[in-house]
Computed example of a mutant assay.
Amino acid sequence: MTHPRGTAFGTACLVQRFTDLPTTEHATDTADQTLAVFSLFALTRFTLSPRIRDLAGGITLHRLGSRREVCGVFPNAGKPLTGTVDVGLIRSQWGEMLRLAASLKYGHSTASLVVGKLHTSSRRSALARALVEYGGLQRTLYALRYLADEACRRITRQLNKGESLHSLRRDLFFAHEGTARRRHHEQQTEQALCLSLVTNAIITWNTAYFELALAHLSQRRGRIDRDLLAHVSPALREHVNPYGTYEFPVEAEYARTGYRPLRRPAGSE
């Protein structure tokens, strides 16, 4: 399963298992990729899949060996491969890199703390520099897969779904201009859980009525290409009015059976 989210949170979510879902891949935007994070994902046996907006000039690819050696084997690949990998530094720090990965994987260190230390240190240690070197190699391998395999470019579609979900949460969390003003951690947690509950309820509602709408379209127009459904997000919100007074007639809702009738588009039969 792919988890679309910001990289710092995504690293913690993947490594420290904030979710019970079997997540193995993390999709992120172009700005959220760093070489150190690429390295940490590879060492902990997860996959970092960022969207690459400008492969020609946006990132630097890394190579093993000198530029002359690379140009001799791949005469058309010398110019893009401007970065080099210090294999000796990686080899000397490999044991420390594995120990850091084990600390993350088994919860002895928090991913957010490690990533913050790696990115804020003014004078990088040998371990930090080795992680950057190894991350350059891992990002190059990912970029090559991104170019060669069209299936790898599904990241954009996954991120669009994640962004639509974030937009739904922002629209629902309109009170106090979207800020959590509770003083105590327990109250802030309750507020966040309530937002998740409402968001999940809307997604469940949308999913159920999507199925009814698809069945209705299948009866009228015949078979629907299921591959098209991969482009549909259940985080629609145009029909949701978050403002006003809320009533919760629990008994009446329990007594309700079946679904509401589907609304027909204007001008349809």
Rank of each mutant, 00 (worst) to 15 (best):
Gln191Ile: 10
Ala180Met: 12
Arg170Pro: 01
Arg183Val: 15
Gln187Asn: 15
Gln188Ser: 10
Gln191Thr: 12
Leu193Ile: 06
Phe173Asp: 07
Glu186Lys: 15
Asp171Cys: 09
Ala180Ile: 13
Glu211Asp: 10
His184Leu: 13
Trp205Gly: 06
Ser196Lys: 12
Ala201Lys: 08
Glu211His: 09
Leu193Gly: 00
Leu195Met: 06
Ser167Phe: 09
Thr179Phe: 11
His166Ala: 11
Arg157Gly: 14
Gln158Ile: 13
Leu195Asn: 07
Gln191Leu: 15
Ala213Ile: 01
Asp225Ser: 03
Ala192Gln: 07
Arg183Glu: 15
Gly162Lys: 10
Asn206Cys: 04
Arg157His: 13
Arg181Gln: 12
Ala208Cys: 06
Thr179Pro: 03
Phe210Lys: 04
His176Ala: 11
Lys161Ala: 05
Cys194Val: 12
Phe210Glu: 09
Leu217Ile: 05
Glu190Asn: 13
Arg183Cys: 08
Cys194Gly: 06
Ser218Gln: 09
Ala180Phe: 15
Ser164Gln: 11
Leu217His: 06
Asn160Ile: 06
Gly222Leu: 00
Ala180Cys: 14
Gly222Lys: 00
Arg220Asn: 00
His184Thr: 15
Arg220Lys: 10
Ala180Asn: 15
Arg157Thr: 13
Gln219Lys: 11
Leu212His: 01
Leu172Pro: 01
Thr207Asn: 03
Leu212Phe: 02
Leu165Met: 11
Ile203Lys: 00
Phe210Tyr: 11
Arg223Asn: 03
Trp205Arg: 11
Ala192Phe: 09
Arg220Val: 07
Ile203Val: 10
Thr207His: 07
Gly178Pro: 01
His176Ile: 04
